[in-house]
Design a protein around this nucleic acid. Structure first.
Length: 721
DNA sequence: CACCGGTTTATTTTT
DNA sequence: TAAACCGGTG
């Protein structure tokens, strides 16, 4: 037997060894929970001789799942390939592939991502004559998905949203089903429905999953919670790990209350707390604790580090975002000289758009970098096009994919033709592809010829697809559809083609990975991977600096961390200040970001940066102020009262002059009741009341009364002349 | 129907 | 700023 408890501290050991009954582990940041989880799985297999397939382990990302799989394989020297270690969504997809026919869907369903869902909503809105200027498709999609997750919510909406939802939501569901498509929530909801309705299926999985483990429990939503309850049979061996301070996905429906609920719903929950932090220096940990302390309604934890005090946290303020990026480069070079590798650095930001300036600067200054998750590979147009072609070939009745590729590349089939075809197909209860062949369709000469040519082409591809390997087929497809030719005219065509080559590599890989002879099944798997792993952050093997959002950094650690653009409005975001809950979530995000750092932490921002194409000045983020200032070492413009910080003022003199006017315009509005202002989007308004940081403004007609941040860059005071 | 050019509009986070 | 969107022209 292996010593799977080696090097663990007492509570960690207890967490691994307590295998029976419901267990809840409260794991502070950096307390080694991933290790505990991995060892626990290994322990159950090795010491309790439980078959490896009888364990279900749910992780937050696919990446985490793969890592865990690998580590277990390594610990026990076993093959972990088929094990149930995955995200909720991947697990559900796997179950539904087997049993979804009970629910009237076909097992070769395809999965659509959020962008697809938005597109779908957009099309529905167009068909139903809902003006996209009144409600943005993306926003409506969010509401539709909210109602889908929790139908009771519909009651809480007001007009005109209720009407929109009542019109659009059923259509959305119908079209998904008609096209054999599932969105992310369907995966969960239909699995729940399946387990509820089909006793035999439920019994099967409850028996299968003797031990259930869920990581990042603080970020589960209500549906996922229900799923866990359904999957846990009489054995009741549920093990959850979480940390309320690290809950950062409320916007996606995550419910921190689930942690408390768990203790209520499951009887005799054993509770284990991991408080020893192995990751960060004491200075970093102290700063993190000070920040998170401002959140109300949390259970105080007593995290302690065994590391030394370490270096002070540097707080650098540059003149511009360019300065800020230059500073980061400078520090990277300095620490690199001291022996750190590029891969030891992480640059974290709140919003993806912040990455640009760092990308530019790094490129110019020759710092190798990897951006995680930005425009993910699978969201690229050319990849989505290829996927749509493949889906259409697998299922010609998939109208959604049909509409994506019918005129991509351009083949003379315009909106009007597509619309006529769609309407006709709907009236005949046929798919659009089928409707082309229906001689009674109302389409005339040229349009119908183009459509027929398209149909012939697809049919020919259907004949070909199983004859060769996927790579050859993809070449055929590129030629037959003239896609390759069109790329030549596209100025981004080269890059796009390279991406398609990458897709080919992926197809080739999967031909090896999945041990199935059935090519159809194989392709279905691959397409599923593409939908579910769209966020899969391909960690490059090269030694490079990592750039990513704080959300993406969850679960990771770096010896050196830069948290950048720490400005009020950017982080915390203005929008999150609207309610206290929002601010608390932002604060937890800050907590997550700070606790990623092992040795060095740098906080940076800029006096002035371009935002919405305009120079803007923001204050320091409140989160900096919430830290004990003695832990910080200010640099650049962060040095208090030192206006003549030579290197900066002098070299930036011109720029300052240039922007003096705009700075004056934007910073610190001195507003009083009765003042007139203009707002970038709401137009003119009158201030009706002023609080310390916020003001309430009455705008004209359609916008009504709004509460805004007093010095929001969008606000300008109108001077009385 | 495709293309052009001007205009508007958005920047939260992701399975 | 940059991408998406709209409307008019060929």
């Amino acid at each position: 037997m292996r010593d799977l408890l080696k090097d663990l501290n007492e509570p960690q050991k207890k967490a691994v060894e307590t295998t029976e009954g419901p267990v809840m582990v409260i794991a502070g940041a950096g307390s080694g929970k991933t290790n505990v989880l991995t060892r626990r799985v290994a322990y159950i297999i090795d010491s309790l001789a439980v078959p490896k397939d009888n364990i279900l382990a749910i992780t937050f990302t696919n990446k985490a799942a793969n890592e865990m799989r690998e580590r277990i394989g390594h610990l026990l020297e076993i093959r972990t390939h088929g094990m149930w270690i995955s995200t909720f969504h991947a697990m559900c997809a796997k179950i539904l592939r087997e049993h979804i026919d009970y629910l009237g869907y076909s097992t070769n369903f395809q999965i659509i991502d959020d962008d697809d869902a938005t597109q779908m909503i957009k099309i529905i809105m167009r068909d139903m004559d809902i003006d996209p200027r009144l409600i943005k498709p993306k926003k409506l999609k969010n509401h539709v998905l909210n109602v889908k997750r929790d139908p009771g919510l519909l009651e809480e909406y007001h007009e005109p949203m209720v009407t929109y939802l009542k019109q659009v939501y059923p259509q959305y569901q119908k079209r998904l089903k008609d096209n054999n498509l599932l969105d992310f929530d369907d995966l969960l909801l239909l699995t729940i429905q399946l387990l509820k309705e089909e006793k035999s299926v439920r019994a099967f999985y409850q028996q299968q999953f003797e031990y259930v483990m869920v990581d990042e429990f603080q970020d589960t939503n209500d549906i996922q919670y229900k799923l866990i309850r359904l999957l846990t049979g009489e054995k009741n061996n549920v093990f959850i790990v979480g940390d309320e301070d690290q809950s950062i996905y409320a916007f996606r429906g995550a419910n921190i209350e689930n942690l408390k609920k768990f203790q209520r719903d499951f009887k005799n929950v054993k509770r284990i707390v991991l408080e020893q932090n192995y990751r960060s220096t004491n200075t970093i940990l102290k700063a993190a604790n000070q920040v998170i302390k401002s959140n109300k309604n949390r259970i105080e934890k007593n995290l302690f580090s065994t590391k030394s005090e370490g270096e002070k946290i540097r707080f650098f303020k540059g003149m511009t975002e360019r300065d800020e990026a230059d500073y980061v480069v400078e520090k990277i070079n300095e620490l690199k000289a001291k022996g750190y590798d590029y891969s030891d650095f992480g640059v974290l930001y709140r919003a993806n758009s912040t990455s640009r300036i760092f990308e530019e600067t790094f490129m110019k200054r020759r710092i190798p970098y990897t951006i995680v998750g930005n425009t993910s590979f699978f969201k690229r147009k050319e990849i989505k096009d290829m996927v749509a072609y493949l889906r259409l070939i697998l299922n010609v009745n998939d109208d959604y994919s049909f509409q994506r590729v019918i005129n991509e590349p351009k083949r003379g089939i315009g909106r009007k033709t597509v619309e006529t075809l769609r309407a006709f197909a709907a009236s005949q209860d046929k798919s659009m592809f089928e409707a082309i062949g229906d001689e009674t369709n109302p389409l005339s000469g040229r349009a119908i010829n183009h459509l027929k040519a398209f149909r012939t082409m697809i049919e020919r591809l259907i004949d070909q697809i199983w004859q060769t390997d996927f790579n050859t087929f993809l070449d055929d497809l590129l030629n037959a559809t003239s896609y390759k030719e069109a790329l030549k005219k596209d100025e981004k065509g080269d890059v796009r083609y390279e991406n398609i080559l990458e897709l080919k590599t992926m197809l080739k890989e999967s031909e090896k990975t999945y041990d199935t002879k059935d090519k159809r099944t194989l392709l279905t798997y691959v397409l599923e991977d593409i939908s579910l792993k769209s966020q899969e952050n391909d960690v490059s093997d090269e030694d490079s600096v990592t750039l990513m959002t704080m959300h993406a950094a969850k679960g990771l650690e770096f010896p050196v961390v830069f948290i950048v653009a720490l400005e009020q409005g950017l982080f915390p975001l203005y929008r999150s200040l609207e309610d206290p809950q929002g601010l608390e979530e932002e604060r937890r995000l800050m907590y997550v970001a700070v606790t990623r750092a092992q040795d060095y932490l740098f906080l940076t921002n800029a006096k002035q940066r371009y935002l919405f194409g305009e120079p803007t000045a923001n204050r320091n983020s409140v989160f900096i102020k919430e830290m004990d200032q003695t832990l910080l070492k200010p640099e650049g413009y962060a040095i208090a009262n030192k206006k003549k910080h030579k290197t900066y003022t002098k070299s930036r003199q011109t720029m300052m002059n240039k922007h003096r006017q705009s700075l004056k315009d934007y910073s610190d509005n001195d507003l009083n009741k009765g003042d007139k202002i203009t707002h970038k989007t709401f137009g003119e308004g009158v201030v009706i009341s002023v609080a310390s940081e916020q003001c309430t403004v009455a705008f004209s007609q359609s916008h009504g009364i709004k509460t805004l941040m007093k010095d929001h860059p969008a606000i300008k005071k109108i001077d009385k002349e």
